[in-house]
């Protein structure tokens, strides 16, 4: 990647900030599928394997990397339907509700967001996946039962069209793309 080599020229490979940026750029499309993947990353960016491993452990510890894991194509594994369920729960109970909902295996994202009355009364968002819309409805009902009288109201918003889908920019000034290079 040309950005990486530009950075390499500009900073010393021992600079932690440089290293982190180089590791992000070299791995955001995926980890090399080789026996020693972190060594391969190190070789690509011109750092030592030990430095790359320490850098990635540090990012894992502070949550900048959530996991080093496989992301399934949920359509491909049979989960064709997804709905954005939105919930109005008491602000004081949002954290306990959010943790409980986030722990469900059919929820892929669970966030607290602000209400915007009067147009938007919901403060808890949970993306629910199922094989079809009926299964999603059933899972939303499971959440509703679990949360019980802590819920004052909820809705499920289904996407009807993708209007734009590009990768989130991971770092200002760097190349875009959380988008996979291998996805079809």
């Amino acid at each position: 990647m040309s950005d990486v080599s530009a950075r390499q020229r500009a900073c010393a490979p021992t600079d932690p900030e440089w290293l982190e940026g180089a590791v992000v750029l070299a791995t955001q499309a995926g980890l090399p599928l080789v026996s020693r993947p972190f060594e391969a990353v190190a070789e690509r960016i011109g750092a030592t394997p030990e430095a790359v491993e320490a850098c990635m452990r540090s990012m894992l510890e502070r949550g900048a990397i959530r996991r080093i894991a496989a992301v399934p194509n949920h359509y491909a594994i049979g989960y064709a339907a997804n709905g954005m369920s939105v919930w109005d729960v008491d602000d004081a109970l949002t954290a306990e509700c959010g943790r409980a909902v986030g722990a469900l295996d059919f929820v892929s994202h669970c966030y607290q967001r602000p209400r915007r009355p009067p147009v938007w009364p919901y403060n808890l968002f949970a993306m629910v996946h199922g094989r079809d819309r009926q299964e999603v409805e059933g899972k939303v009902a499971t959440i509703a039962r679990m949360l019980g009288d802590r819920v004052r109201g909820f809705e499920v918003l289904y996407s009807t069209r993708i209007l734009k889908k590009t990768g989130l920019r991971l770092r200002r000034g760097d190349a875009d793309a959380t988008q996979p290079t291998r996805a079809r």
Binding site: Q28, A64, I68, R169
Partner: peptide
């Protein structure tokens, strides 16, 4: 699994916000 599109990606899942955005 990647080539057949069963997996979209294998690697670090970055939290872009914690990386400074």
């Amino acid at each position: 699994l990647l080539a057949d599109g069963v997996l979209t990606r294998f690697g670090p899942m970055y939290d872009a916000e914690r990386l400074g955005g």
